[in-house]
Amino acid sequence: MTEKKDELEQNLQKVETASLEEAASDETVELNNETEVQQPEDETSELRKQIEELKNKLEEEEARGLRARADFENFKRRSNLDRESAEKYRAQKILTNILPVLDNFERALQVEPKTDEGISILKGMDMVYRSLVAAVEEEGLSAIEAEGKEFDPNFHQAVMQEKDEAKPAGIVLAELQKGYMLKDRILRPTMVKVNE
């Protein structure tokens, strides 16, 4: 019998605890509803303003991030173009310095030798000249064709004019100094004599 009594007391305690918890949760819900209803309109408008400000700041930061990313992409593209250009024209300075050497070789090869020794020296110079020309052509150097062509100020530098009735005006009559290009860049324009 005492067991039944104990069991009844336990059940009674459980029911009381459950009803107390239910009553407490009802009061909490009522308090929460009351506090929500009791919030003044000033606070809600203040919260809305803060939310709008935060949204605007977020949009500004997103735009700033997009601009930074675009700037970085442009920087990478410019850097790649600069690197490619530097690689493409890496030999420009040395080839510019070699141009007078080529001119001197060409002048020396135009001399008529009078002795057998002079002929052999000229042959040796011609071999050196040809190997030098082959080396610079391998780097992308090429001579600009001028004689008999129409004058082009992009490739030719007119230093003299002459009248030749047999040829049309604006035609290059003579090449005074060879011009050279490195790939698609002009290193030195050709000095020419142009028909009036």
Rank of each mutant, 00 (worst) to 15 (best):
E61I: 08
L132R: 13
S142I: 04
K57Q: 12
I121T: 10
A86M: 08
R77N: 14
A68W: 00
M125P: 06
L66V: 11
K76L: 12
G65I: 08
V111R: 07
A135F: 04
F105N: 07
N80V: 11
A108Y: 05
D26K: 13
N74I: 09
P113M: 01
E27C: 00
L31V: 08
G124C: 03
R90P: 00
G118P: 11
G124R: 14
S45A: 06
S25K: 15
A24F: 01
A134L: 06
I51G: 08
K57S: 11
Q50T: 10
D103I: 03
G118M: 08
G118E: 12
L95H: 05
E36A: 08
V111G: 03
N97M: 10
I119R: 15
S79G: 10
L54Q: 15
L102D: 07
E139A: 08
F72V: 01
T115D: 07
R78T: 10
E73V: 12
E106R: 15
I119E: 10
R64Q: 11
T28C: 00
L54S: 13
K114I: 06
A24W: 01
K55A: 05
R67C: 02
R78W: 00
E73G: 00
I98N: 02
G140C: 07
R78M: 04
E46I: 06
K114S: 13
L132W: 07
D82G: 01
E137Q: 15
